[in-house]
Design a protein around this nucleic acid. Sequence first.
DNA 1: ACACAAAGTTGACTCGTTGCACTTTTGGAT
DNA 2: ATCCAAAAGTGCAACGAGTCAACTTTGTGT
Lengths: 193, 193
Amino acid sequence: MTEPVVGRRERKKAATRQAIADAALRLFLERGYDQVGIRDIADAADVSTTTLFKHFSGKEALVFDQEQDVDAGLVAAVRERVAGESVADALRRYVLAHWLPIAGHPQRAEFVALVDTTPALRAYYEQMWTRHTGTLGAAIAAELGRPADDLACLTLARFVLDIPALTSTRPDRRAAVETIFELLRDGWNERTG
Amino acid sequence: MTEPVVGRRERKKAATRQAIADAALRLFLERGYDQVGIRDIADAADVSTTTLFKHFSGKEALVFDQEQDVDAGLVAAVRERVAGESVADALRRYVLAHWLPIAGHPQRAEFVALVDTTPALRAYYEQMWTRHTGTLGAAIAAELGRPADDLACLTLARFVLDIPALTSTRPDRRAAVETIFELLRDGWNERTG
DNA sequence: ACACAAAGTTGACTCGTTGCACTTTTGGAT
DNA sequence: ATCCAAAAGTGCAACGAGTCAACTTTGTGT
């Protein structure tokens, strides 16, 4: 095994961060986002508010501590796709396999409910996705040997990243995802249902 | 001429609102968004901060006073399209005709620069667009005799509303818009440039 | 053992935004 | 003409998020 080179210092730092994130999520779920102040969280984690803000950029960031690397999975899905599979298909497979199950989890449900019912969090969450457009677009372009800022690739990336917003309120999320990917593959067709 | 039915009351209210918006835009352009406080604007317009917030929902809204009814034009374009024209074509025509020229205007340039260089304004602006997804999607669906929350229609609406974000940094914005509409019409094609 | 840097504390401060109690204005009904 | 209720505006105090500067504590490398 590789001995972790991290000393007590970094471990304590990570512990503090975790304590803050845990306290925040617990309080948010208990009382609701708007009913919890930064000072409440800081007190619960037994740190000062200044320390809290050295670990997290803002109140919203406390909620999304875990889901930082959204694009990593997408980029990997595009790069390590099976031979002959198109980029769009790889993305479709990844989305169906990784984005749908999350909503089913028991504890994830109340987390999703928290985000959905809090406008500030909805807004922050949506922006999280669109912020990854550049990364995913560049990855797609690289696979196809096009320039990193190729418009078509960026557009595909953006459209794929729109999927969560478009499907979140649908009764059958899987069918919704399929519908959107069909539209992406075949284009907008006025005459079919 | 049609005598304006508005009394002194509404006229004064409108004047106050305009004074606030003018003062705000002037100060923002002079010093930059973050260097201007709400109290500065209220003072410049000679009103109290309370009054200011009765006219505008927040600091960002002061900047976008003029471009409220984004969706009205889009909805009209879809509804009053020429016979036989597809919804997608109508949207393409409207976007090419109405969204492109704006960027060319002289004073509009520094306004755009202000928005582009201020993260808070960029975020607010992007959300303005996506907020119209429901309206435009419903309008498209109505034209095609589909349910108002038809997923394909909402998706098309969303994708069209993504266009400003995708094309704003492009050297040739017209070509960029055309490219995206081609992608929307024909679907994502891996093999063509 | 020592010195330096990173982590944390404290308290006051800025700034957007809201609430409350109050005055002024104005349109309409009597 | 007059009076009233609603709308518009004011002043001020407050709240919560986030920042700042000076200071203390705690690891770490030498």
